[in-house]
Simulated scan of single mutants.
Amino acid sequence: MPFTYDTEVALATVAALINTAKDDLDPLVTPGGLDRFLEQQRFSGSRTRTDAELRAVRALRAELEVIWFAEEDDAVRLVNAILRRAHALPQLVRHDEWDWHFHATAPEAPLEERMATEAAMALADVIRGHELDRLRSCAAEDCDGVVLDLTRNRSKRFCDTGNCANRTHVKAYRARKAQGA
């Protein structure tokens, strides 16, 4: 099932946010690291740039990881909880280079609330489309990153945090070569 571009962008941001905890050097340990992450993800709206904001985003990261691996009924309950907390009221907006898409909070809402609501709206699309199997773990044995599989044939197996696919393929090649020698 193809998702709208804003859903795909929001899902990619969720995966990237969860995967920041998997990096050896978590970029979300300072407000400056959060600034760089949000800039990479092209996330708009107001910011306080405080330690409290950073802690709230880190807590959201853990909450979204639980949803990523949840069974459908649990995912629905958790997504609905986020939307209720934010008093979400979806509205069509257009800004910057983005065409019409949904925002469910005001641009002045706290960062973690806006991030949570965008994630919840995207995850709601995944659930409605019965596509939770597109949210999975990286297939590399030494990685616990998450994978967002938007491929048509559902073939994506490795995360985008590093070179998991290359590392795994090189290891398999060397093993095959050693068996042949």
Rank of each mutant, 00 (worst) to 15 (best):
A106R: 07
D51M: 10
E63A: 15
W68N: 01
Q91W: 03
E113D: 12
L89R: 14
E63K: 15
F69P: 00
A106K: 05
P90T: 08
A88S: 15
E97H: 10
R77K: 13
S44T: 11
L78G: 03
V66L: 12
A56I: 07
L89H: 14
S44P: 00
H101T: 00
V93N: 04
A59Q: 11
H95A: 14
R58P: 03
R47I: 01
V66M: 10
D99I: 02
T50F: 10
F43K: 06
D51A: 06
R84K: 13
Q40A: 15
R114K: 09
E108Y: 01
A59H: 03
E71W: 00
V93T: 10
R47F: 06
V66Q: 14
R42A: 12
N80V: 04
T48W: 08
E39V: 10
E118L: 11
F102P: 04
R61T: 06
R58T: 14
D74F: 01
E113A: 12
E97L: 07
R55Y: 03
E112N: 13
W68Y: 05
I67R: 09
A81L: 05
F102S: 07
E72Q: 12
L64E: 07
R61K: 03
R61G: 05
R49G: 09
A86E: 00
R55V: 07
V66I: 12
W68L: 07
M115H: 02
